[in-house]
């Protein structure tokens, strides 16, 4: 090890891999409904797409996790985006193609994609 920069490079490279185990509540959580109904409706590809996007954009402090049935099977695949200090946003009938927009607009820029949310779906 010859320099701080080298150390920092290893740190940065490993950080995203361990971020979920770090303390602090400032993490953004993407929680995908993954009960049998969710999986049947195609929740797994959605979740994997999120993991891929998070990694591609090198987003730290974002975790992708799953939960059981959220209770509205007809709207599956569903997921929640929980950002610290903000109200949770629920997306419904998500398919993998919608994921990169959610990540870009909501996770990165903080603006929920209204038309995909449960509010829009139920308001129709």
């Amino acid at each position: 090890m010859k320099s701080l920069a080298e150390l920092e490079a290893i740190r940065a490279k490993t950080l995203e891999k361990v971020a979920m185990r770090k303390e602090g509540d400032d993490a953004v959580r993407i929680v995908v409904g993954m009960a049998t109904c969710g999986i049947a409706a195609g929740a797994r590809p959605v979740m994997l797409k999120f993991v891929e996007e998070v990694q591609k954009r090198n987003l730290q402090n974002v975790t992708v996790s799953q939960t059981g049935c959220i209770g509205m099977c007809r709207l599956e695949p569903m997921l929640d985006v929980i950002m610290p200090g903000k109200e949770k946003v629920t997306y419904v009938k998500v398919n993998p193609d919608m994921v990169s927009r959610i990540v870009a607009e909501h996770i990165v820029n903080g603006r929920p994609v209204q038309e995909y949310t449960i509010g829009a779906a139920e308001g129709k």
Partner: peptide, 14 residues
């Protein structure tokens, strides 16, 4: 060792 470094390891030594 990479995990230790990710948790700010060897930063103090540096």
């Amino acid at each position: 060792i990479d995990e230790y470094i990710a948790f700010d390891g060897y930063k103090a030594l540096a």
